[in-house]
Amino acid sequence: MKARSAISSLLGALALAALPFSTALAQKPVAVPLLLCPWGCGPTESDTILMNQMIKEGSPVTLLPQETPGYMYNIREMANQRHWTKTAFSTEDVVIQLALKWGGTPELKEFLPERVPIRFKLLYGETWWAQGKFFVTFDPSIKSPADLKGKRIGLGLRGQSDWGVFSRLVLEYGYGITPQNADIRHLTPAALTQQLLDGSVDVAVTAFGTEPSFTEILISPPLRQLEASPKPLRYIGVSKAAIDKVNAKLGTTFLHVTLPAGKLPKQSEPLSLGFVRGFKAAHPDFPEETAYQIVMAVARNAPKMKELHALWKIWSPELMLHGLSEENVHPGAKRAYVELGWWDKVKQFPAVTYPQ
């Protein structure tokens, strides 16, 4: 009995001695890998700033930004179960929708070789992107994408969701423009911009981002390069009817907007175009508390980060919430929005829906 008592006392002492170590482990921030896009895309820089702010304030969760080939890569990588409980990622509403229903089909296998049948949960919105849903040219004879049959068209790479994939979908399902009736070239943004300047292509995609009120516009370096040319830059819009056709065909939620004149460089007239909504997202198995802490950290830090990077300049609660719904939001994110008093705002905005 004495031996048993001594052993029990020893075990108790060891347990007490281990308490500070256990407490230290419990207090160690949870590190969350965050899949982004190629270096220089914007989020790689803005989310590094967010990581630093989270570390400075002692947040219980820290995001670890990771450069990737892009959003098409991210959605396929997130099909791997090893990411489901520990990784968040940058994506767009339309990327999730296409991966759910169209991956591996004749319509999309060029861009998505297989389906990713996961209804990912949204954490917060970060940017509206327009590239691939309007075009630019120096040719005054091109008035509409319908005029592009037989033309040389510079689009982004097949792994780039907006630059290379959505532009093809808009052209084909909105206007009937395909590689069979036009010279479509998939190039890097820098290369296609230079080819447009050199006259090697007739029309091309370019980029800008914004937020729901269109108060703040993020002009991309390629668009700034076109602005600097002495040639008369012309914007080629995409009609609401074309956006509606694409959405009806694919079950997507491209948003149609008419952008007032003067919002873009050398934009003399209103521009009809489409947008996708960019989000941070995670698998449904991603821990609720971690999702909650991520959203709360963004809500706390975003106002002061407006002065640190252009992507944070467009931040607002409305941008975070636009597109969220009871069906698509992560439960931890919703808990944060309810606590912040913001959740009722989602009723004002069209929700991101997932195809059956």
Rank of each mutant, 00 (worst) to 15 (best):
V116I: 13
V116C: 11
V116T: 14
G125K: 05
E126C: 02
T127N: 00
T127H: 01
W128R: 10
W128V: 00
W129L: 00
G132Y: 15
G132N: 11
K133Y: 02
F134Q: 12
T137N: 10
T137G: 05
F138C: 03
P140T: 09
K143T: 12
K143D: 11
P145W: 14
P145Y: 14
P145A: 10
A146H: 14
A146I: 01
A146D: 10
D147Q: 09
L148E: 01
G150M: 06
R152A: 06
I153M: 04
I153H: 07
G154M: 11
L155V: 15
G156N: 11
L157R: 15
G159V: 05
Q160W: 12
S161E: 14
S161Q: 12
W163V: 13
G164Y: 02
V165G: 08
V165K: 05
F166A: 07
S167Q: 03
S167L: 04
R168S: 15
V170Y: 01
E172W: 05
G174T: 02
T178V: 07
T178I: 07
N181A: 12
N181M: 05
N181I: 06
I184A: 04
I184M: 13
R185I: 07
P189D: 08
L192T: 03
T193C: 10
L196V: 10
L197R: 03
D198L: 10
T206F: 12
T206A: 09
T210N: 06
T210L: 06
T210K: 06
E211W: 05
P212C: 00
T215P: 00
E216A: 11
E216I: 10
L218C: 11
L218K: 09
I219W: 09
P221N: 12
P222C: 07
L226Q: 04
E227Y: 00
A228G: 11
S229H: 06
L233K: 08
R234P: 14
Y235S: 01
G237F: 01
V238N: 13
S239M: 06
K240V: 06
A242G: 08
I243G: 15
D244P: 14
